[in-house]
């Protein structure tokens, strides 16, 4: 029925119209179904996490938000997310502070500075970084990065120790700390931020770049007046994608971070934890209550991620009329 000779086609005109309408209906329902499915899955995850969290939180003898310990399976179950929240946010923040400027720089280099024959392979190389499995990053982090951090951390202790956060209480211990994790996460989120911003920069209309050049802009001024403002929403979206990965990264963090759950504002001291890392480490040996407690921490991570994404949308929407979409 799909292929028919002209004579056939004329004879079957009503039938064919019926077919194409059925096709429309099928496609419409398929795409609507896909959309609904997404909502259902999201709701199911949220509902499941909330239900299991509620079970655990009812038995918690400590304050869930401010408690440092994670001992839900003890006789007197006590667990809290203070260490995890701090570790997750701080390591992700360090990662973004390092990764976003570097990624924007790489993306600009690829899209506006490098000659094409260098830009192409270079872009491919950056994409390859995204294909490396997390565990490989984790192993590289613990076997290479940690032993090589001591020079940097003792330097920071000496010259930046006055900032308190870079003060090291004991020197010479392996750098299995939040700072190292932040650096590792920065490397891991670099390719995705680079790839997205690169594509956005490439889509800057040539006429806007020429407008800047014709006004007597140098290359950097052209980038500043035409490329970066146009790419701003894209840079934010890309950073959010990267941040999502940094917040949720599990195995690389678990490999690098020293397993001692003490909360410390000294980022160079070993220890600390993140939500995902904590779940991965504790889940196998957890009792039913312990598992529910981990679910509760998972719910918090889920909410944090939603909040971060929501904030990004607000930032992008606030300057919508200047987005360049109208041009």
């Amino acid at each position: 029925m799909t292929s028919s000779s002209p004579a056939d086609a004329r004879g079957r005109t009503p039938r064919r119209r019926g077919d194409s309408r059925r096709g429309d209906a099928v496609f419409f329902n398929l795409s609507r179904g896909a959309g609904v499915l997404l909502l259902v899955v999201m709701a199911a995850i949220a509902g499941f996490l909330t239900y299991r969290s509620a079970l655990a939180l009812g038995k918690n003898e400590g304050n869930f938000l401010t408690t440092f310990e994670w001992t839900p399976d003890a006789v007197k179950p006590v667990f809290g997310i203070a260490v995890l929240t701090f570790g997750t946010l701080v390591s992700a923040l360090i990662a973004m502070l390092i990764a976003v400027p570097v990624a924007v720089g790489i993306a600009l280099f690829i899209s506006h500075y490098a000659p094409r024959r260098i830009a192409q392979p270079f872009a491919y190389l950056v994409d390859l970084l995204a294909a490396v499995p997390s565990i490989v990053y984790g192993l590289w982090g613990v076997l290479f990065l940690v032993p090589h951090m001591n020079g940097l951390t003792s330097w920071m202790d000496q010259y930046l120790g006055w900032t308190y956060i870079f003060d090291q209480s004991s020197s010479g211990v392996p750098a299995r700390n939040l700072f190292t994790v932040g650096i590792l996460l920065a490397i891991m989120v670099l390719p995705i931020i680079t790839a997205v911003t690169r594509e956005v920069f490439r889509q800057v209309p040539r006429m806007h770049e020429e407008a800047a050049l014709a006004l007597g802009a140098t290359r950097w001024e052209m980038v500043r007046t035409a490329v970066l403002p146009f790419g701003r929403p894209g840079i934010i979206s890309a950073s959010m994608l990267g941040l999502g990965r940094a917040l949720g990264e599990t195995i690389a963090v678990a490999t690098v971070l020293s397993t001692n759950s003490k909360l410390s504002l000294h980022l160079l001291d070993p220890g600390g934890g993140t939500f995902a890392e904590n779940i991965a480490l504790k889940f196998n040996e957890a009792q039913p209550l312990g598992r529910d407690a981990l679910m509760a921490s998972g719910l918090v991570l889920f909410v944090i991620t939603l909040l971060v994404n929501g904030a990004a949308r607000v930032i992008i929407a606030r300057r919508k009329e200047y987005s360049g979409a109208a041009a």
């Binding site: 006429m207 806007h208 407008a211 035409a226 200047y322 987005s323």
Partner: peptide, 12 residues
């Protein structure tokens, strides 16, 4: 100075 074929004010 130069004026182009398509109007190109900076959109941002």
């Amino acid at each position: 100075g130069m004026v182009f074929q398509r109007p190109n004010p900076f959109p941002t």
